[in-house]
Design a protein around this nucleic acid. Structure first.
Lengths: 172, 172
DNA sequence: GGTCGTTTGTTGTAATCGCAACCATATGGG
DNA sequence: CCCATATGGTTGCGATTACAACAAACGACC
């Protein structure tokens, strides 16, 4: 995977000439290399972290996301839409994920008194316990593959740079 | 829309609450903020870029990935496995994606004379033409949402930092 | 030549996800 | 009060993906 980078970026040059692209963003530039690293980093990190979490805590990264977002919310309760927004998934995706988690007894659906359209999701005791067991697994993975490889300065740089390219858009 | 998100990419904004992992990695630190920005940036960028590409060139980002990797390869020809590796997808995923692209006449399957197990994918004239029309669409999107928002220094930083966290792993 | 382990591509299967459509509810103006 | 519009959640549906298992072919070795 790392090797492909070099190869790719070398040949990118030939492929993109004739394209109006210009210098910035052209092949072999920091731009294209940054883009490629961005894609590779995400793909490989997500795969490994999910795999580790499933093996170590019998929880997918998607499920973990919902549980952790619930736990971080005030009172460990959130409406479906808000939860979907925070977990970066669609509302329909949230519906199905909540259904699975509810079947496992990790979350509970409750009607919202102030808005009868809404459904409020809460973390059950079992859910909190499962989350407690999953946290160190995920934590050690993020440490090993992410935090331990970067300095504090690099993390700050990464945060600042990436926040500039976040697009505010709907997710479903 | 076509699925811009590959696997599991969710927001885990501050996944380390309640852990005594020390300050590094705790909520509100550059670590967790960088991680959250990483996830949000990828999710939103992929969604928007895929959407723009589908609307502007009738090509999903996944299909584009295959075509561009073929184009960048020497002679615009690659074995399935190598193509899958470069496109960050599994071999089975590559099989099916190649099947679709072949049906559309954008790529052609050829036997590899030197290894009868292998199948070599080549870019057809139609495929090259579709790719030519797709390139400016994708590049303008990458420019608008990524490159134009960052300086050269920031792109170099991003590349250097992200390459440190790329994990060399199999994708299928 | 024969054998074992590896690699290559494909397929069955199951899981996931988003979009569009839908109903229920809420909200703001006539 | 009534209607138009917007929002919240669910469901049907199609599309995509990875994992595991498989056969064919390769390669190293004896």
């Amino acid at each position: 995977m790392t090797q492909a980078t070099t190869e790719t970026e070398r040949s990118v040059k030939a492929a993109f000439e004739g394209l109006e692209g210009g210098d910035r963003g052209g092949p072999g530039t920091p731009a294209s290399e940054a883009w490629g690293a961005f894609l590779r980093a995400h793909a490989s990190l997500m795969r490994v972290l999910d795999s580790e979490l499933v093996r170590g805590a019998e929880l997918s990264l998607s499920d973990f996301d919902v549980l952790i977002q619930l736990r971080l919310a005030d009172g460990a309760r959130l409406r479906m839409s808000e939860l979907a927004r925070r977990a970066l998934i669609s509302r329909s995706g949230m519906t199905r994920r909540a259904g699975q988690l509810e079947e496992r007894g990790l979350v509970a659906r409750q009607p919202d008194a102030s808005d009868r359209r809404s459904v409020v999701l809460t973390l059950t005791d079992d859910g909190a316990q499962v989350l407690r067991r999953a946290l160190p697994v995920h934590f050690s993975g993020v440490h090993a593959h992410f935090l331990d490889r970067l300095t504090d300065d690099e993390l700050s740089q990464l945060r600042d740079v990436l926040e500039k390219v976040v697009i505010d858009c709907d997710f479903g």
